[in-house]
Computed example of a mutant assay.
Amino acid sequence: MCTGLAYTNDTFYFGRNLDLEYSLNNKVVVTPRNFPFKLRKEEELSSHYSIIGMAMVVDNYPLYFDAVNEKGLGMGGLNFDGFAVYHDEQKGKKNITPFEFIPYLLGKCATVQEAKTLLKDINLINISFSEKLQLSPLHWLISDKDSSIVVESTSEGLQVYDNQFGVLTNNPSFPYHKYNMSNYLNLTANIPENRLSSKVDLAVYSRGMGAIGLPGDLSSPSRFVRAAYARLNSVADKTEQANVSQFFHILDFVAQPRGGAMAPEGIHEITQYSSCVSVEELTYYYKTYENSQICAVSMKNLPLDSTDLFVYELEKEQAIHYTN
């Protein structure tokens, strides 16, 4: 289970929580412009925008979970179990595997609008990376500074939805989440008024009572509501440090501590990592379950016309600053 987030406060930030019961040996990976992406059914993508994000690297191929390109387009894949359907090849379409989807779109598109145009020709096909790495059932949040969309490959084909909330969690499908938000239209960050009746005198006795009814569980629909509420009411100073800090606070609002949710295998699901990419600074910020300190990898000073991946191990040991 996961939560994706797009946030704009003068500049644009994109990231997510990745919630799983096991580690995937993730690394921060920068793919330079001339790294050759070999595609299973389409021509090699040999020249493209540079990309920074979290990925597994298998056989020198970055399998991205979430990433942002140098133009400021962000994309993340989230679990969509029971709903995702990948298809056979189709003539007249660009047949892209789900593990190629993030580099293909971020390599070619600078904006959400460009992505929408490209998506009209894409068919996500049922081809795994290898026998050991089967396809994950996913849907995707794609965002830039101006807008967000959700992409879902279902039995009806590729569906693209405008997403005014700027967040995404897991199944059910996005139309359900959008409809479900209407159940919470009375939520407010302000001091609530008595709407029950003018005949009774009811007093506000605590701050935050405008958010009574905000769900507190860890289910996908509830995390969608909580993340949307926090994002849409977010206030932060317009500095890089304040924005990054605020972004992680929003993700913390829907994070999973060990013991809160059990996977079918009897293992506890946790937020393995949280990420935040600053488009202006071209920097990937992250923290892990083991290390709550914010760490950062920048691609500003890297040779982005290179052909070789830049791979950075995660800092997982808890860093503590002692003041005495």
Rank of each mutant, 00 (worst) to 15 (best):
M1K: 09
T3C: 06
G4C: 00
T11S: 13
Y13S: 04
Y13D: 00
F14A: 05
F14Y: 12
K27W: 00
F37W: 13
E43V: 02
E44N: 14
L45D: 03
L45M: 14
I51L: 01
I51T: 00
V68A: 02
G72Q: 07
G74P: 08
M75A: 09
D81W: 10
H87M: 08
Q90P: 00
G92A: 07
K93I: 09
F99H: 15
F99P: 01
Y104K: 01
A110Y: 06
A115D: 02
K116Q: 10
I122Q: 05
D146I: 01
V150H: 03
S155I: 11
G157A: 06
L158T: 14
L168S: 08
H177F: 07
N183R: 11
L185S: 15
I191A: 05
P192A: 01
L196Q: 08
L196P: 00
V204A: 09
R207C: 00
G208Y: 10
I212E: 02
Q241F: 10
A242Y: 12
Q246A: 12
F248Y: 09
A255M: 11
M262P: 01
G266Q: 12
T271N: 12
T271H: 09
Y285Q: 10
K287Q: 15
E290Y: 13
N291E: 09
L309G: 02
K316S: 14
A319F: 12
H321N: 08
